[in-house]
């Protein structure tokens, strides 16, 4: 698969030496974490993914923004950003409707975080991408179709 080499170079240029510091925090006690949600990541339909995540009645919301380009030249590297203006947002997830497994990533937004996360995902083909937001136990979505000209899941 091709890397987004220009992105990579840009990042390297800006990063400097900070990233090379090796943490001494490895052995500090960790907070209790939810176990990796295997049923949700293995789900092969949106309904199964939502069920495994405990999502009920997700509603489209203008307060959720999914930032992504309309066309992804390389499906292996599709930048996506989700921003929620809904108070008490505690989770932001990215799902791709037409991937073999829909759920790509789920972020737990702690009280010290802004509800604004960015990552890069793979897309096998043109598909709706969904930003799913959990706030006060309710679920809200923003969707955007991203056209893929070169799939990211081929061999």
């Amino acid at each position: 698969m091709m890397l987004a080499s220009q992105d990579r170079r840009g990042f390297l240029r800006h990063t400097g030496l900070f990233g090379l510091a090796i943490s001494a925090l490895t052995f500090l006690p960790r907070m209790a974490h939810a176990a990796w949600n295997k049923p949700a990541f293995d789900a092969k339909t949106m309904a199964d993914a939502y069920k495994a995540m405990g999502v009920e009645n997700p509603t489209a919301s203008a307060d959720v923004t999914l930032v992504a380009s309309d066309i992804a030249e390389n499906g292996a590297v599709v930048p996506v950003q989700a921003i929620s203006k809904i108070p008490n947002t505690t989770q932001i997830s990215f799902l791709v409707e037409k991937n073999p497994n829909m759920l790509a990533a789920a972020f737990d937004i702690g009280p010290d975080m802004l509800a604004d996360v960015t990552t890069r995902i793979k897309m096998g083909q043109t598909s709706n991408v969904i930003a799913l937001v959990k706030a006060d136990g309710k679920y809200f979505t923003a969707a955007k179709e991203i056209k893929v000209t070169l799939g990211g899941c081929g061999g």
Binding site: M1, L3, D7, R8, F11, R30, M31, H33, A34, W36, N37, F41, A76, V77, V78, P79, Q81, V96, N99, N101, L103, A104, A105, A106, F107, D108, I109, G110, D112, M113, L114, D116, V117, T118, T119, R120, I121, K122, M123, G152, C153
Partner: peptide, 23 residues
Amino acid sequence: KEVMQAQWGASVSKNPYLAFKIK
């Protein structure tokens, strides 16, 4: 102090990029 945790699947891109904002 922990500020964020995430669970990822295999469809996060190779050599993953992540950006987030802390208050």
